[in-house]
Design a protein around this nucleic acid. Structure first.
Length: 281
DNA sequence: GCCCAGGGAATCG
DNA sequence: CGATTCCATGGG
């Protein structure tokens, strides 16, 4: 990875990375693709505009220090994805998935924001999830340069169900309040989940109303970078039924979450990957 | 175990 | 165009 400061902008040269796939694959919801191909959004309360041209990333208005302190971590540039993907190659399906979606990186997102985002994501589609989160940030997020930060647990806990109605989150609104109460009162200590034994972390998360197994795995993977977490939705269920009658390959388990992302995007976007009769049931 | 909640996007006819 | 399908969880 080669980096250079170019005036106000910071340039990173990196192979094997797709900005569009990474920001648009359903792991984060606060980046918006622009007409000129760039992306604008927020992460960790910070605004970022950036673009990709070939193997070159341009971080607009970004200093080397900002990149080192925030964005290098956020985009997980310190993790060796080449080595991880190398391990997937012995499985034919995972190899195809890597070819198709191997530019995706698992972002290191804020746990609280990730928890709320995936509570909202349940039984929902990406455009609408983005809309609800946008309205949530406007409702009680702190104003920062470029827009609104994601609300703190305290700011959200201060709201009533009625206050939340303008979010149009439907039945998920009360789940968000339950999470806000449990986190703001200290009943649940999110940072401890980084190192907690993973089954215990699962139990902690599913003790929040509206957090089932699927949402909990997403939060562990996308919010705590627990790469062994393995979210199973209807698409992954289909893939396992079709490709892996004997179960998902054991050797890929330690990085199951990464494999899951690649597999998910492969089967969702390649109609020929799975026969029609497996696609709906 | 079954059905519904609440909503908007995607897909179908 | 209108009708139907999709989606994860909890509660009756």
């Amino acid at each position: 990875m080669k980096t250079t400061q170019n005036g106000k902008h910071f340039i990173v040269e990196i192979d094997d990375f797709s900005l569009a796939d990474t920001l648009d694959c359903g792991q984060c919801f606060r980046f918006v693709p622009q007409e000129d191909g760039s992306f604008c959004g927020f992460a960790g309360g910070r605004y970022l505009a950036m673009r990709q041209d070939g193997n070159q990333l341009t971080f607009y208005d970004t200093s080397a220090e900002d990149f080192e302190r925030h964005w290098k971590l956020y985009f997980d540039f310190d993790t060796d994805y080449q080595a991880i993907k190398q391990g997937f190659l012995e499985d034919e399906v995972l190899k195809k998935s890597c070819d198709y979606a191997g530019g995706i990186r698992i972002l290191r997102q804020d746990p609280w924001e990730t928890l709320c985002s995936f509570i909202i994501s349940q039984n929902n589609n990406i455009p609408r999830i983005k809309g609800i989160i946008d309205r949530l940030c406007k409702l009680c997020g702190e104003q920062v340069p470029g827009g609104y930060a994601f609300p703190t647990p305290e700011a959200l806990a201060a709201k009533s169900l009625d206050d939340l109605s303008i979010m149009r989150a439907g039945f998920r609104a009360r789940y968000l309040l339950d999470a806000a109460h449990k986190v703001s009162t200290g009943k649940i200590d999110l940072p401890s989940l980084y190192t907690m034994e993973i089954d215990e972390a699962r139990k902690t998360l599913t003790s929040i109303c509206g957090v089932g197994p699927k949402v909990a795995e997403c939060v562990l993977l996308f919010g705590f970078h627990r790469l062994e977490a393995f979210p199973v939705d209807v698409w992954i269920k289909r893939a396992i039924t079709y490709f892996y009658q004997d179960g998902f390959p054991e050797f890929a388990r330690p990085y199951g979450g990464i494999a899951q992302q690649y597999l998910f995007h492969y089967i969702r976007n390649c109609p020929e990957a799975i026969p029609d009769e497996y696609r709906r049931k």
